[in-house]
């Protein structure tokens, strides 16, 4: 039988080892976190410096005098307010139509029986793997012949059907107990009415998750808006930023970084406020 000090020593060792392991984890994940934060914080730092202050031999994390005027200059040199407005219109215009199309199609695939159902569903699935970037040239020609070049509608219309959203909604509707639906139909509801008042409330978490993902995706869109727009009045934030970079190619880094912060701030603020909701939505939607 081991002596009391020996047992004590063994427990102490185990405790120390667990502590050391936890510490190691904090150091690793903490170090990586700092590494991931640096690019953005360094841009914020530059955006608040005077033009001459960025040329220091050693990196200065804090400006000697905070140049908030850089932000005013960004809005003075390019219409970022208008870009923001256009982005919001396009993102919401995509989302609102998508919510209708994916809900009704998801419902049909989850609950109705009809001919060619599997083949039709397959057409939706393949769209998930064939993103718009693959077919920009023919789509550009289509948009051109529809006379939609350089409109906000052009930036929205190509995304109005979502194979991914339809897939998510189908999964969600399958989870809803059939009894709910039957009861509503026995009460004499029409199916469309039943879908709206009985089924949709049941799948609200999926609708929220899909909405967040759609908003983030289209807020960040670049290639398609770049191709179908050629004037300032319809451009979105990301395109506005790229144009600003070209226009300011004299490399005033303080202004370029201020513009980058302006473009990224709305979504990042929303993310910080609703972190849990965002993370859970992306988790949930990835899970399938």
């Amino acid at each position: 039988m081991p002596s009391v000090p020996a047992v004590f020593e063994r427990n102490l060792r185990a405790l120390l080892r667990r502590r050391a392991q936890t510490l190691l984890m904090h150091v690793t994940v903490g170090g990586l976190s700092v590494l991931w934060l640096v690019p953005y914080l360094w841009a914020v730092a530059a955006s608040l410096k005077a033009r001459t202050e960025i040329f220091t031999a050693t990196p200065q994390w804090f400006p000697s005098a905070w140049q908030w005027s850089n932000y005013l200059d960004v809005f003075r040199y390019a219409p970022f307010g208008l870009y923001l407005f256009n982005t919001v219109v396009v993102v919401l215009g995509i989302l609102l139509v998508q919510l209708v199309t994916v809900t009704v199609a998801g419902f049909a695939f989850a609950r109705l029986e009809f001919r060619w159902r599997d083949i039709l569903f397959y057409l939706f699935i393949v769209q998930m793997m064939l993103p718009i970037h693959a077919v920009i040239v023919p789509n550009y020609l289509t948009i051109k012949s529809l006379g939609l070049l350089n409109t906000r509608l052009a930036m929205m219309i190509v995304f109005w059907a979502s194979g991914y959203g339809t897939f998510l909604m189908r999964q969600a509707f399958r989870q809803v107990p059939r009894e709910l639906e039957e009861a509503a139909l026995l009460d004499g509801c029409s199916r469309l009415r039943m879908l709206w008042s009985v089924m949709v409330p049941q799948v609200r978490p999926t609708l929220v998750a899909f909405s967040l993902i759609s908003v983030v995706t289209h807020w960040n869109d670049f290639l398609w808006p770049l191709i179908v727009t050629d004037t300032q009045d319809v451009r979105t934030l990301t395109i506005g930023l790229a144009m600003f970079v070209q226009q300011e190619s004299g490399a005033d880094w303080t202004l370029l970084m201020a513009a980058t912060v302006v473009v990224t701030a709305p979504l990042l603020v929303a993310f910080l406020l609703f972190q849990r909701q965002f993370v859970e939505s992306f988790m949930y939607a990835g899970l399938r």
Binding site: W36, W42, N220, T264
Partner: peptide
């Protein structure tokens, strides 16, 4: 600290690739 770490690695998802590219050009 867990939510802080999680936010630190996840926030670039919210940053448009065009803007992320600008950060890295700098």
């Amino acid at each position: 600290l867990r939510p802080v770490y999680r936010a630190a690695v996840f926030y670039p998802t919210m940053v448009p690739m065009a803007a992320a590219a600008m950060l890295w050009v700098w």
